[in-house]
């Protein structure tokens, strides 16, 4: 039996560095993310309510929100589907040239977006490689909403593929075998076993691709044709206002974009938390 007075537990952690790294994180995020964003809000705060609504709710601006959000959303959805197939092929099968295909996926990350925009426009224009075949079918891609959607799909793909790849690698083939030996056919195995396991990662990939598409500017402005009320995206309107020295108008639109994106991403995060509920211990 020990007579020693119990020593109060020292609050020191076994693994040090929490204070330092949290401090760094906050300072860094503040400097890089929060202060510039706060500046946008401050600038907007100088406007009267009427000025603000006039800037953010003009018909041309409303049309651009519609295009930006819908095209980004559609591009994100399409990318989930095709990105999943690309990731699946890259992870599950060995074939000659796999490394090259794998590297190709990253190209939209690396390519200057203007280059992508010009290339896509050239291909999908009436006389372009792909455009000339679509034209007789009555499908116009370049200089239409579809063009915007194509450009946003292009830049979003790597986000989905790169998010899904590690998760697919981790997915044991045994769970598919288990499903098969329990009598599930391939379709049931995919829909009831594989997709639910991948769902959180698919949501993450979607959120990343969607957020990236909302902010995309360079590639879209070449292929969209920038027709007012039809093919103008919101970032383009912001630039236009800046070029007219209407800084407050530009930041007002930016604030609306920011708040909406933030709410959407928050929603996706909540959805993701729910979809990973089985991970809790």
């Amino acid at each position: 039996m020990s007579l020693a007075v119990p020593v109060p537990q020292s609050p020191r952690r076994v693994l040090p560095g929490f204070g330092l790294s949290l401090g760094f994180t906050l300072a860094y995020l503040g400097l890089i993310v929060l202060i510039p964003l706060a500046a946008a809000f401050l600038k907007t705060a100088g406007m009267s309510w009427d000025e603000f609504t006039a800037a953010v709710a003009a018909p041309r601006v409303l049309a651009s929100y519609r295009l930006s959000f819908f095209a980004s959303f559609a591009a994100g959805l399409v990318n989930i589907f095709f990105g999943l197939i690309v990731a699946w092929v890259l992870v599950r099968y060995a074939f000659p040239g796999r490394r090259i295909v794998d590297a190709l996926v990253d190209l939209p990350f690396a390519l200057p977006t203007a280059v992508a925009g010009i290339a896509l426009t050239a291909i999908y224009a009436k006389n372009g490689w792909v455009g000339q075949w679509l034209e007789p079918l009555g499908i116009k891609v370049a200089f239409t909403e579809i063009g915007v959607f194509v450009a946003l799909t292009f830049i979003g793909l790597p986000f989905v593929v790169r998010t899904l790849q590690p998760v697919l690698l981790e997915l044991e083939p045994e769970i598919e075998e288990a499903a098969a030996s329990l009598g599930a056919n391939r379709w049931e195995t995919i829909t009831r076993v594989i997709l639910p396991e991948l769902f959180p990662a698919m949501l993450t990939g979607f959120a990343l691709a969607f957020a990236r598409a909302l902010g995309e500017y360079g590639s879209v402005v070449f292929i969209s044709g920038n027709m007012p009320m039809r093919t103008e995206i919101t970032p383009l309107l912001i630039i236009t206002k800046l070029e007219q020295y209407d800084y407050r108008g530009a930041t007002a639109i930016a604030v609306v974009m920011l708040v909406t994106s933030f709410l959407l991403l928050l929603l996706i995060n909540l959805l993701q938390k729910w979809s990973r509920r089985y991970h809790r211990i």
């Binding site: 329990l182 599930a184 056919n185």
Partner: peptide, 26 residues
Amino acid sequence: VGFVFQHYALFRHMTVLENIAFGLRV
């Protein structure tokens, strides 16, 4: 055939009940 895997291969997103019922529900 009932097959039991070394690392269980349970479906993580399903409850115990759903795991056991899987073979019947498909």
